[in-house]
Amino acid sequence: MMSFFRKVLYFILFLALWEAAVALLGIKEFILPSPLKTLSHIFVPQLAAKYKWPLHIQATLLEILASFFITALAGNLLALLITWSGFLKKIVTPIIVFFNSLPKIALAPLFLLWFGYGLLPNTLIAVLVAFFPIVINTSTGLETVEEDLLDLVRYLGASKWQMFVKIRIPNALPYIFSGFKIAATMCVVGSIVGEFIASDKGLGYLLKDAQAFIDTPTMFACLILISILGILLFGAISLLESKVLFWMPNVSDRSAV
């Protein structure tokens, strides 16, 4: 495996090549802005003031965080419920699997029609996109428990509640975290697409708006900021995972899918 240092080196080399290529080949700014030019649209005060970056970053960040917390709570709760009750599982699981296979992003315009403009529809779109993977991951984790272990504690007179708290939930934690990671990307995608379709603030809105003015450096700047928001959320989850699952040897390669 390559060291972190070398990866960073490659990344910087890539940016330098890009910068040089734009300068040497005389590529027009509206086609492909250089990295420095892009960054100047965020950091040079005279240029950046026009774009109200804090407002847009705040809007998008709020949507991403709200949708992530709603999805994480509701998704895990539903997964617990359907694993707890056999009857509920029979009814709900096929519907969950069915919806999980649909291209849910296509529902986005419908949400705008139902809930109007603003943060609410974008957050709900992100929830819709991220919800089903979490339910499926968590319930997979709650169910893939060794039968022998369950037999043993049943024989020892453990209650259903005890089995959940002491066996099923700890067993599901790795799956829950892998669900969180999928949901983190999905929440960003959902929020941004919501902002594309209709919004008056947020990085997705600004990206779409800048496109109308052929303001390419701003578009790239939005892209960078969106990526950073996504990476921060993903990183926070990974950090939490390594703290909670400190006993697991290789935390990175597990998934229900």
Binding site: F30, I31, T185, V188, V189, I192, V193, F196, G204, L207, K208, A210, Q211, I214, T216, M219, F220, C222, L223, I226, S227, G230, I231, F234
Partner: peptide, 14 residues
């Protein structure tokens, strides 16, 4: 690991 769909407007511009 990035939300790639965000690049859509740039592709459209190009």
């Amino acid at each position: 690991s990035l939300p790639i769909i965000a690049i859509a407007p740039i592709i459209l511009l190009w």
